[in-house]
Design a protein around this nucleic acid. Structure first.
Lengths: 262, 262
DNA sequence: CGGACCATTGAGAGCAGTCAAGTAGGGTGG
DNA sequence: CCACCCTACTTGACTGCTCTCAATGGTCCG
């Protein structure tokens, strides 16, 4: 692995160094005890709102996995469900493969976001989860999470709020939107989430390929190209391969408004 | 209100009679203590899995509201969130109105299904909930549900499973499907849910108008008409206004397969 | 009977998909 | 270091599905 080009990639390198893991280590997907107390994502993640003592107890049941490299799986569709995963660094995409072999991307996950919530109600994961870049994830045994949630009202509440937020999010994507609206919605949503995590809200590095974005948004990859080009011609953004600069956030927000409904 | 024409309507009448409420009462939207122990939806609803003693305690905090008439609101977008609602009888649709005044339907709810889950993470309901037919709903104070969920692991689990199931459901609707696939998906989904509740899986009475179905599925109402007609011409269904007979379930399941992903 | 509302049907337009060709990096091997 | 290839991306031409607009038909009411 050579120099990282992405802001996210750079951040991962910094992070992995800080926890004493070399991002370019060969096959080191070992598990080690996590430290939620020191994690900068804690306020966005499941243990959000836990007081110090509880946080210390909570992190005992969290294992840090990684570094995963681009293309490594966190879990696969059909695997037995027994843990939620939180992204600690990097980016993970989830997707299913239907009977006809067609891929359907269900989400892109940033640090602090939980993966596997949709598997709680059955015993198996319902999609593949794949690292898009060098990533670290935290495994949280769900049975133990549930035990703690019985003892700590704030944890129970956080879990339910996270699930509820997920429902509200996906509700937004109903309805028919133009390619422009979808694309703007995607960019603005990503920018906001990155901003929450302390990254630049103006400069996005898309770790996924156009085909993935297209699939996620329900359009053809050629349309992604065309829309990005038009956005660029209109001065909304500047595109250089996978790097996107948001130049006119106001108009983008406006376009995205229909989709994101805020 | 004259003779009910729908199977659901008839069932509601029967039900409302059985609980001593006249369905055609004028403005009787009073609340009364509910009886989950005697409710035929219990196995599909939140108290699913609770033993007798707990069920008795659970139902103490449940209020039955109704009968609501078609067009009555259960709650409105922006109302303070403090309770989940379960449909006891009838059908409820939920929808939002965006800044431009456009309606976006987010769901149709059958007996035993929970409304308001997406509001848990904020203090306010995020959409309007409106009875499509004479309906009875059960109000469950959420703070008290949470208290009970702390004491009863099976209730906590049921809540999380319900939320998780909701996430998995909405994930299915991602992706781009043809008008035919969407329509078939809608019909098959409805048939399955009615079947679970003991209604005919072959004969559907659509309580909502074409415009609502169109909106929900992200298509034009004219397209709904055209697809239904074509389905009829091809012998898949028989349509008489809002009544739909499913004649070739296998081919419908097949068409729906892409959308429902089973 | 007339009005309101919903649904159907037809004609035409447009957005986005498909197919196909061309471009550009990035990586690999000689 | 260069030639080559592979993959991702872009761009163009054409097609087609579904939308929009508009007129008509049905049903339920008063």
């Amino acid at each position: 692995m050579t120099e990282q080009q992405s802001t996210i990639g750079e951040a991962i390198d910094a992070l992995t160094r800080s926890v004493g893991i070399r991002a370019d280590a060969q096959i080191s997907q070992g598990a080690s005890a996590a430290s939620c107390s020191n994690c900068s994502n804690a306020r966005l993640c499941l243990p959000h709102g836990l007081e110090r003592a509880k946080l210390n107890e909570f992190e005992c049941m969290v294992d840090e996995l990684g570094p995963l490299h681009a293309g490594n799986f966190v879990f696969r569709d059909g695997d037995e469900f027994n843990a939620l995963y939180a992204v600690r660094a990097g980016m993970v995409k989830t997707y299913t493969i239907d009977r006809e072999g067609r891929e359907q991307i269900t989400g892109f996950y940033l640090p602090g976001e939980l993966i596997g919530l949709d598997a709680i109600h059955c015993e198996r994961y319902r999609n593949h989860a794949l690292a898009l870049d060098t990533s670290i994830v935290c495994r949280m045994n769900f049975a133990r999470v549930q035990e703690l949630a019985l003892r700590w009202p704030e944890l129970q509440n956080e879990l339910m709020c996270t699930l509820s937020r997920g429902l509200a999010e996906t509700d937004k994507l109903r309805g028919e939107y133009s390619a422009d609206e979808r694309m703007a919605g995607f960019l603005v949503d990503l920018a906001r989430r990155l901003e929450q995590r302390g990254y630049s809200a103006k400069r996005l590095y898309l770790l996924m390929e156009r085909r993935d974005i297209a699939n996620f948004l329900g359009m053809a990859k050629e349309t992604i190209s065309r829309v990005l080009r038009r956005f660029q011609d209109e001065g909304l953004i500047a595109v250089d391969r996978r790097e996107v600069l948001l130049l006119n956030r106001e108009r983008l927000d406006n376009l995205a408004g229909a989709v994101l409904r805020d």
